[in-house]
């Protein structure tokens, strides 16, 4: 009977069971990483290693938010790359201008 492609079978009453396992798993990962960031912020001495760990953890968190919450992981490859490629250029800009900032400091 129901041949309409964009209408659900359960028009009234019967609503499907929630599928929230992956969502909560992602939340626990994000919460654990944030808690770990706090631990590192107050136990590790300042330095390049600490900054590298923070940047790495931020990228892991971004991966889970964009991939799972924003569903990008499950989109087609073309869409994933159209989002990811511009961001890689942004990282390039960031590194270039950090070095530029260091040069300004030297010149002052």
């Amino acid at each position: 009977m129901a041949e309409h492609t964009y209408h659900h079978d359960n028009e009234h009453g019967a609503v499907a069971e929630p599928q929230t396992k992956a969502i909560w798993r992602t939340f626990y990962i994000l919460a654990a990483i944030t808690a770990l960031e706090f631990l590192i912020a107050f136990t590790m001495p300042h330095g390049t290693l600490k900054i590298a760990i923070f940047v790495g953890m931020t990228i892991v968190k971004a991966f889970y938010i964009v991939g799972e919450f924003m569903h990008l992981k499950h989109e087609v490859k073309t869409l994933i790359w159209s989002i990811l490629l511009p961001c890689i250029f942004v990282v390039w800009l960031l590194l270039a201008l950090l070095m530029e900032g260091g040069a300004i400091f030297q010149a002052r």
């Binding site: 159209s82 989002i83 511009p86 961001c87 942004v90 800009l93 960031l94 201008l97 950090l98 530029e100 900032g101 260091g102 300004i104 400091f105 002052r108």
Partner: peptide, 22 residues
């Protein structure tokens, strides 16, 4: 993605200015 560029610009500016100070 366009909004990403705006926020990146702000954070990159932060990095540049921070690195130009002691």
């Amino acid at each position: 993605i366009s909004d990403t560029f705006t926020f990146s610009a702000l954070l990159v500016t932060y990095g540049l200015i921070r690195f130009s100070y002691p």
